[in-house]
Simulated assay, not measured.
Amino acid sequence: MLSYLAAALPAQTSAPARLLALQCALRSTAAGKVEIPTGLVRGMRLGRGATALAELQDARWLYSPTLPGGRSGGFTAQLLDVAVRMQAPTLKDRSRAADWILRTCQRKELRELDASSRLLALALSVHVPSGPSGAPASAEQEVLARMCGLPAQGLVDVLDVLVRARFLRSWAYDPAPEDLRWDLVLQGQPSGEDSGLTA
């Protein structure tokens, strides 16, 4: 789903709008209708939810007849991108993934971080192989940057934020300079793969 959104949304889409789009895509019906309650908008900690929603409307990715009221109001919307309805996860898998995203973003290490840091934490978690292997995860730097709407050189600063927050134990460049590897502090946490959310 993260790869789909990286392709479907404009490159300059902000991290709060990407996090909101992720929840909308995962919570939509087969017809593309989505209802995001007030508590969910507040729980996502996106700042002004209306700003992220307006950004998705400006990108013509969804349409909502009314912007959410106040700082954290809920809304209903229609997803305009037909491709979102053809994504592979089943409704049950989508529901599990939406819940996993919220739980991951609410982890004590991430809760107070900005949306870009939380989005990168999600992207890194999705790439962690399931099982007790203990091996560091890895991915192409460009892929991670595209998923998070960051310039490739901007990843370094956000990775360092995640190390200081003790979400990551460490990160480094692989021998191939276009690849990154990292080690999550809390091994054994459910990965995106376990939750039904894949990159």
Rank of each mutant, 00 (worst) to 15 (best):
L5P: 05
L5V: 12
A6F: 05
A6L: 10
A8M: 11
L9F: 11
A11P: 06
T13C: 06
T13I: 02
P16C: 09
A17L: 01
L19R: 03
Q23K: 02
Q23G: 00
L26K: 00
L26H: 00
R27K: 11
S28V: 02
A31Q: 14
V34Y: 08
V34P: 07
I36T: 07
P37G: 14
R42C: 06
R42M: 03
R42Q: 11
R45H: 13
G47F: 01
R48I: 09
G49P: 03
A50V: 10
A50S: 15
A52G: 00
A52V: 10
E55H: 00
E55V: 05
E55T: 01
A59Q: 05
A59G: 07
R60N: 05
W61V: 04
L62P: 00
L62Q: 00
Y63T: 01
Y63H: 08
T66H: 14
G70H: 09
G70P: 04
G70I: 09
R71N: 12
S72C: 08
G73W: 08
G74L: 06
G74D: 04
F75N: 09
T76L: 04
A77E: 12
A77L: 03
Q78R: 15
L79F: 01
L80S: 10
L80H: 03
D81H: 05
V82T: 13
A83L: 11
V84M: 09
M86Q: 06
M86A: 15
Q87W: 00
Q87A: 13
Q87G: 07
A88K: 14
T90I: 06
L91D: 11
D93V: 08
R96F: 11
R107N: 04
R107S: 11
K108F: 06
S117D: 12
L122A: 12
A123L: 04
S125R: 15
S130Y: 04
G134L: 07
A135F: 02
P136G: 11
A137K: 01
S138Y: 14
Q141K: 15
V143F: 12
L144G: 08
A145G: 05
R146E: 14
M147C: 14
M147V: 12
C148I: 08
A152V: 15
Q153P: 08
Q153E: 14
Q153G: 09
G154W: 10
G154L: 07
V156P: 01
D157C: 12
V158A: 06
D160T: 09
D160G: 15
V161E: 15
L162V: 13
L162W: 07
V163S: 00
R164D: 15
A165Y: 11
A165G: 05
A165E: 00
R166N: 08
L168P: 02
L168V: 12
R169F: 13
Y173C: 10
P175R: 05
P175E: 13
P177M: 10
D179E: 13
W182F: 05
L184T: 05
V185G: 01
V185Q: 04
Q187T: 12
G188H: 03
G188M: 07
G188F: 06
G188Y: 10
Q189Y: 10
Q189V: 13
S191V: 10
S191C: 03
G196N: 01
T198L: 14
T198F: 13
T198N: 06
A199L: 06
